[in-house]
Protein backbone atom coordinates (compact mmCIF):
# COMPACT_ATOMS: atom_id res chain seq x y z
CA UNK A 1 0.00 0.00 0.00
CA UNK A 2 2.50 2.55 -1.20
CA UNK A 3 1.64 5.71 -3.08
CA UNK A 4 2.36 5.75 -6.80
CA UNK A 5 5.35 7.75 -7.93
CA UNK A 6 4.87 11.51 -8.30
CA UNK A 7 6.86 14.70 -8.56
CA UNK A 8 6.78 17.17 -5.75
CA UNK A 9 7.03 20.91 -5.53
CA UNK A 10 6.62 23.08 -2.50
CA UNK A 11 5.44 26.45 -3.73
CA UNK A 12 6.50 29.58 -1.90
CA UNK A 13 3.94 32.10 -3.10
CA UNK A 14 0.44 32.29 -4.44
CA UNK A 15 1.58 33.45 -7.91
CA UNK A 16 4.01 30.53 -8.06
CA UNK A 17 1.21 28.12 -7.15
CA UNK A 18 -1.11 29.54 -9.79
CA UNK A 19 1.67 29.29 -12.33
CA UNK A 20 2.28 25.62 -11.56
CA UNK A 21 -1.44 24.94 -11.70
CA UNK A 22 -1.64 26.46 -15.17
CA UNK A 23 1.41 24.57 -16.32
CA UNK A 24 0.59 21.11 -14.92
CA UNK A 25 -3.19 21.43 -15.03
CA UNK A 26 -5.03 18.17 -14.50
CA UNK A 27 -1.88 16.23 -13.62
CA UNK A 28 -1.48 18.09 -10.36
CA UNK A 29 -2.92 17.70 -6.89
CA UNK A 30 -2.64 20.30 -4.19
CA UNK A 31 -1.64 19.00 -0.79
CA UNK A 32 -2.37 21.01 2.32
CA UNK A 33 -2.89 18.95 5.49
CA UNK A 34 -3.08 15.79 3.42
CA UNK A 35 -5.18 13.94 5.97
CA UNK A 36 -7.73 12.95 3.33
CA UNK A 37 -5.50 13.02 0.29
CA UNK A 38 -2.64 10.84 1.54
CA UNK A 39 -4.83 7.80 2.27
CA UNK A 40 -6.23 7.99 -1.27
CA UNK A 41 -2.68 8.17 -2.61
CA UNK A 42 -1.50 5.29 -0.43
CA UNK A 43 -4.44 3.22 -1.67
CA UNK A 44 -3.68 4.30 -5.22
CA UNK A 45 -7.17 5.68 -5.67
CA UNK A 46 -5.52 8.83 -6.97
CA UNK A 47 -2.36 9.10 -9.06
CA UNK A 48 -1.31 12.68 -9.71
CA UNK A 49 1.87 13.30 -11.65
CA UNK A 50 2.81 16.10 -9.34
CA UNK A 51 1.95 17.01 -5.79
CA UNK A 52 1.94 20.74 -5.08
CA UNK A 53 2.60 21.44 -1.43
CA UNK A 54 0.99 24.72 -0.38
CA UNK A 55 1.91 24.54 3.29
CA UNK A 56 4.41 27.37 2.83
CA UNK A 57 1.91 29.93 1.54
CA UNK A 58 1.64 32.73 4.09
CA UNK A 59 -1.21 34.22 2.06
CA UNK A 60 -3.41 31.31 3.10
CA UNK A 61 -2.76 31.52 6.82
CA UNK A 62 -4.24 33.37 9.72
CA UNK A 63 -7.53 34.16 11.41
CA UNK A 64 -8.74 37.76 11.51
CA UNK A 65 -11.88 39.83 11.98
CA UNK A 66 -12.60 42.71 9.63
CA UNK A 67 -15.67 44.48 8.27
CA UNK A 68 -18.08 42.26 10.12
CA UNK A 69 -16.50 39.06 8.83
CA UNK A 70 -14.34 36.43 10.43
CA UNK A 71 -11.74 35.48 7.87
CA UNK A 72 -10.16 32.07 8.26
CA UNK A 73 -7.18 31.29 6.07
CA UNK A 74 -7.43 28.03 4.17
CA UNK A 75 -4.25 26.70 5.77
CA UNK A 76 -5.54 27.14 9.29
CA UNK A 77 -5.07 23.80 11.01
CA UNK A 78 -7.99 22.24 12.82
CA UNK A 79 -6.25 22.57 16.16
CA UNK A 80 -5.63 26.27 15.51
CA UNK A 81 -9.31 26.71 14.79
CA UNK A 82 -10.10 24.95 18.03
CA UNK A 83 -7.97 27.21 20.21
CA UNK A 84 -8.78 30.51 18.47
CA UNK A 85 -10.53 33.10 20.64
CA UNK A 86 -11.82 34.83 17.51
CA UNK A 87 -13.46 31.63 16.30
CA UNK A 88 -14.97 30.95 19.71
CA UNK A 89 -16.37 34.48 19.90
CA UNK A 90 -17.53 35.01 16.34
CA UNK A 91 -18.26 31.53 15.03
CA UNK A 92 -18.99 29.35 18.05
CA UNK A 93 -20.55 26.77 15.73
CA UNK A 94 -17.08 25.94 14.44
CA UNK A 95 -15.73 25.67 17.95
CA UNK A 96 -18.52 23.27 18.80
CA UNK A 97 -17.92 21.15 15.72
CA UNK A 98 -14.20 20.88 16.12
CA UNK A 99 -13.87 18.20 18.82
CA UNK A 100 -15.96 15.95 16.62
CA UNK A 101 -13.45 16.05 13.78
CA UNK A 102 -11.33 12.89 13.85
CA UNK A 103 -8.64 12.83 16.51
CA UNK A 104 -5.98 15.12 17.96
CA UNK A 105 -3.20 13.80 15.73
CA UNK A 106 -5.32 14.40 12.63
CA UNK A 107 -6.35 17.86 13.82
CA UNK A 108 -2.65 18.70 14.18
CA UNK A 109 -2.28 18.68 10.45
CA UNK A 110 -5.68 18.74 8.78
CA UNK A 111 -6.63 22.17 7.46
CA UNK A 112 -9.83 24.16 7.41
CA UNK A 113 -9.48 24.91 3.71
CA UNK A 114 -8.66 21.33 2.88
CA UNK A 115 -11.85 20.15 4.51
CA UNK A 116 -13.89 22.77 2.62
CA UNK A 117 -12.22 22.19 -0.75
CA UNK A 118 -12.33 18.40 -0.44
CA UNK A 119 -16.11 18.66 0.07
CA UNK A 120 -16.51 15.27 1.67
CA UNK A 121 -20.25 14.99 2.25
CA UNK A 122 -19.55 13.55 5.69
CA UNK A 123 -17.26 16.37 6.79
CA UNK A 124 -18.35 18.73 9.55
CA UNK A 125 -16.88 22.03 8.42
CA UNK A 126 -18.64 22.41 5.04
CA UNK A 127 -21.97 22.01 6.77
CA UNK A 128 -20.98 24.57 9.39
CA UNK A 129 -20.02 27.02 6.70
CA UNK A 130 -23.40 26.56 5.07
CA UNK A 131 -25.22 27.21 8.31
CA UNK A 132 -23.00 30.23 8.94
CA UNK A 133 -23.74 31.73 5.50
CA UNK A 134 -20.06 32.06 4.82
CA UNK A 135 -18.39 32.90 1.56
CA UNK A 136 -15.29 31.49 -0.04
CA UNK A 137 -12.37 33.45 -1.38
CA UNK A 138 -10.84 31.71 -4.38
CA UNK A 139 -7.71 32.79 -6.22
CA UNK A 140 -6.95 32.19 -9.86
CA UNK A 141 -5.05 33.70 -12.75
CA UNK A 142 -7.48 36.59 -12.89
CA UNK A 143 -7.19 37.42 -9.24
CA UNK A 144 -9.54 36.63 -6.42
CA UNK A 145 -13.23 35.95 -6.57
CA UNK A 146 -15.74 35.37 -3.85
CA UNK A 147 -18.37 32.66 -3.96
CA UNK A 148 -21.29 32.42 -1.62
CA UNK A 149 -21.34 29.12 0.22
CA UNK A 150 -24.81 28.44 -1.19
CA UNK A 151 -23.20 28.26 -4.64
CA UNK A 152 -19.97 26.60 -3.58
CA UNK A 153 -20.73 22.94 -2.97
CA UNK A 154 -21.74 21.30 -6.22
CA UNK A 155 -21.91 17.65 -5.23
CA UNK A 156 -19.89 14.71 -4.06
CA UNK A 157 -16.33 16.09 -3.68
CA UNK A 158 -17.23 18.82 -6.19
CA UNK A 159 -17.00 22.53 -5.56
CA UNK A 160 -16.92 25.84 -7.42
CA UNK A 161 -13.10 25.77 -7.39
CA UNK A 162 -11.82 25.46 -10.97
CA UNK A 163 -8.80 23.25 -11.73
CA UNK A 164 -6.45 26.22 -11.95
CA UNK A 165 -7.72 27.87 -8.80
CA UNK A 166 -7.08 27.54 -5.08
CA UNK A 167 -9.15 28.25 -2.01
CA UNK A 168 -7.61 31.11 -0.07
CA UNK A 169 -9.95 31.67 2.82
CA UNK A 170 -13.48 31.55 4.09
CA UNK A 171 -15.27 34.61 5.37
CA UNK A 172 -18.03 34.21 7.91
CA UNK A 173 -20.35 36.95 9.13
CA UNK A 174 -19.58 37.49 12.79
CA UNK A 175 -22.13 36.24 15.28
CA UNK A 176 -25.06 38.63 15.39
CA UNK A 177 -27.02 39.70 18.44
CA UNK A 178 -29.31 36.92 19.60
CA UNK A 179 -27.70 34.42 17.26
CA UNK A 180 -27.09 30.96 18.66
CA UNK A 181 -25.23 27.93 17.43
CA UNK A 182 -25.76 24.24 18.07
CA UNK A 183 -24.02 21.19 16.71
CA UNK A 184 -24.57 17.48 17.07
CA UNK A 185 -23.77 14.34 15.18
CA UNK A 186 -24.38 10.62 15.51
CA UNK A 187 -21.29 8.50 15.06
CA UNK A 188 -20.70 4.78 15.38
CA UNK A 189 -17.40 5.50 17.06
CA UNK A 190 -15.96 8.67 18.52
CA UNK A 191 -14.10 10.62 15.85
CA UNK A 192 -15.56 8.69 12.92
CA UNK A 193 -17.50 10.27 10.11
CA UNK A 194 -21.08 10.76 11.21
CA UNK A 195 -24.07 8.67 10.16
CA UNK A 196 -25.94 11.96 10.26
CA UNK A 197 -24.77 15.33 11.51
CA UNK A 198 -26.41 18.69 12.01
CA UNK A 199 -24.86 22.14 12.27
CA UNK A 200 -27.42 24.76 13.15
CA UNK A 201 -27.75 28.50 13.64
CA UNK A 202 -30.73 30.57 14.66
CA UNK A 203 -31.75 33.86 16.15
CA UNK A 204 -33.42 33.40 19.47
CA UNK A 205 -35.83 35.61 21.29
CA UNK A 206 -36.72 33.74 24.41
CA UNK A 207 -38.05 30.42 23.20
CA UNK A 208 -38.92 31.79 19.79
CA UNK A 209 -36.45 30.90 17.12
CA UNK A 210 -36.13 32.67 13.82
CA UNK A 211 -33.77 32.67 10.88
CA UNK A 212 -33.20 28.99 11.59
CA UNK A 213 -30.58 27.28 9.49
CA UNK A 214 -30.37 23.51 9.78
CA UNK A 215 -27.38 22.31 7.82
CA UNK A 216 -27.14 18.53 7.52
CA UNK A 217 -24.10 16.54 6.57
CA UNK A 218 -23.54 12.87 5.83
CA UNK A 219 -27.04 12.78 4.42
CA UNK A 220 -26.74 13.73 0.77
CA UNK A 221 -23.82 14.22 -1.61
CA UNK A 222 -23.19 17.66 -0.17
CA UNK A 223 -24.26 19.57 2.91
CA UNK A 224 -27.91 20.51 2.70
CA UNK A 225 -30.05 23.17 4.36
CA UNK A 226 -33.41 21.92 5.58
CA UNK A 227 -35.59 24.84 4.55
CA UNK A 228 -39.00 23.33 5.17
CA UNK A 229 -38.03 22.22 8.64
CA UNK A 230 -36.69 25.68 9.37
CA UNK A 231 -39.94 27.24 8.15
CA UNK A 232 -41.86 25.02 10.50
CA UNK A 233 -39.95 26.52 13.40
CA UNK A 234 -39.31 30.11 12.41
CA UNK A 235 -41.16 32.62 14.53
CA UNK A 236 -42.87 30.12 16.77
CA UNK A 237 -42.26 29.24 20.37
CA UNK A 238 -40.55 25.89 20.31
CA UNK A 239 -42.93 23.30 21.70
CA UNK A 240 -43.49 19.62 21.07
CA UNK A 241 -45.95 20.31 18.27
CA UNK A 242 -43.57 22.65 16.45
CA UNK A 243 -40.73 20.20 16.88
CA UNK A 244 -42.78 17.43 15.38
CA UNK A 245 -43.78 19.64 12.47
CA UNK A 246 -40.11 20.40 11.82
CA UNK A 247 -39.23 16.72 12.01
CA UNK A 248 -42.05 15.84 9.66
CA UNK A 249 -41.01 18.54 7.22
CA UNK A 250 -37.59 16.96 6.83
CA UNK A 251 -39.17 14.53 4.41
CA UNK A 252 -39.36 17.42 1.95
CA UNK A 253 -35.88 18.69 2.74
CA UNK A 254 -33.76 15.59 2.70
CA UNK A 255 -33.20 12.83 0.21
CA UNK A 256 -30.71 10.71 2.15
CA UNK A 257 -28.22 8.40 0.50
CA UNK A 258 -27.88 5.03 2.15
CA UNK A 259 -24.46 3.92 3.32
CA UNK A 260 -22.91 0.58 4.21
CA UNK A 261 -24.59 0.42 7.58
CA UNK A 262 -27.69 2.58 7.20
CA UNK A 263 -30.61 2.80 4.82
CA UNK A 264 -32.02 6.12 3.66
CA UNK A 265 -34.97 5.58 6.01
CA UNK A 266 -32.66 5.21 8.99
CA UNK A 267 -30.80 8.34 8.05
CA UNK A 268 -34.04 10.29 7.76
CA UNK A 269 -35.16 8.99 11.13
CA UNK A 270 -31.85 9.92 12.73
CA UNK A 271 -31.96 13.34 11.07
CA UNK A 272 -35.30 13.87 12.76
CA UNK A 273 -33.96 12.84 16.13
CA UNK A 274 -31.02 15.19 15.70
CA UNK A 275 -33.33 17.99 14.63
CA UNK A 276 -35.28 17.63 17.85
CA UNK A 277 -32.15 17.64 19.94
CA UNK A 278 -30.45 20.51 18.16
CA UNK A 279 -33.52 22.74 18.07
CA UNK A 280 -34.05 22.16 21.78
CA UNK A 281 -30.46 23.12 22.35
CA UNK A 282 -30.89 26.29 20.32
CA UNK A 283 -34.03 27.24 22.18
CA UNK A 284 -32.43 26.65 25.53
CA UNK A 285 -29.44 28.84 24.77
CA UNK A 286 -27.24 26.91 22.41
CA UNK A 287 -23.93 25.75 23.73
Amino acid sequence: MKAPSFDYVKVQSLPELLGVLVERGDDAKIIAGGQSLVPTLNMRLSAPEILIDINGLEELKGIAVADGYLRIGALTRHYELGRSDEVAAHAPLLAQALPHIAHEAIRSRGTFGGSIANADPAAELPACLLALRGRLVIAGQNGERTVDVADFFHGLYETAIEPEEVLVAAEIPVLGGGERAAFDELVMRHGDYAIVGLAAMAKADGEILSDVRLSFFSVEGKPVLAAAAADAVNGKPLNEEVLQAAQAALENDLDPLSDLYNTAATKLHLARVLTGRVLSKLASGGA
Binding site: M1, G34, N42, A105
Partner: peptide, 27 residues
Protein backbone atom coordinates in the same frame (compact mmCIF):
# COMPACT_ATOMS: atom_id res chain seq x y z
CA UNK B 1 -2.84 0.87 8.27
CA UNK B 2 -1.17 3.55 6.13
CA UNK B 3 -4.43 5.46 6.10
CA UNK B 4 -4.17 7.39 9.35
CA UNK B 5 -6.64 5.30 11.28
CA UNK B 6 -4.72 3.03 13.65
CA UNK B 7 -2.41 5.55 15.28
CA UNK B 8 0.56 3.18 15.60
CA UNK B 9 2.73 5.55 13.55
CA UNK B 10 2.08 8.60 15.71
CA UNK B 11 5.16 10.79 16.18
CA UNK B 12 5.70 14.39 17.17
CA UNK B 13 6.32 16.68 14.20
CA UNK B 14 7.21 20.26 15.03
CA UNK B 15 5.83 19.79 18.49
CA UNK B 16 2.45 18.35 17.45
CA UNK B 17 1.43 14.71 17.49
CA UNK B 18 1.01 13.60 13.91
CA UNK B 19 0.31 10.46 11.91
CA UNK B 20 3.63 9.84 10.20
CA UNK B 21 1.91 7.69 7.55
CA UNK B 22 -0.07 10.73 6.39
CA UNK B 23 2.91 13.00 5.80
CA UNK B 24 5.44 12.51 3.07
CA UNK B 25 9.04 12.76 4.18
CA UNK B 26 9.67 15.60 1.70
CA UNK B 27 6.99 17.61 3.44
Amino acid sequence: CEQGVCGACTVRLDGRITRSCLVFAVQ
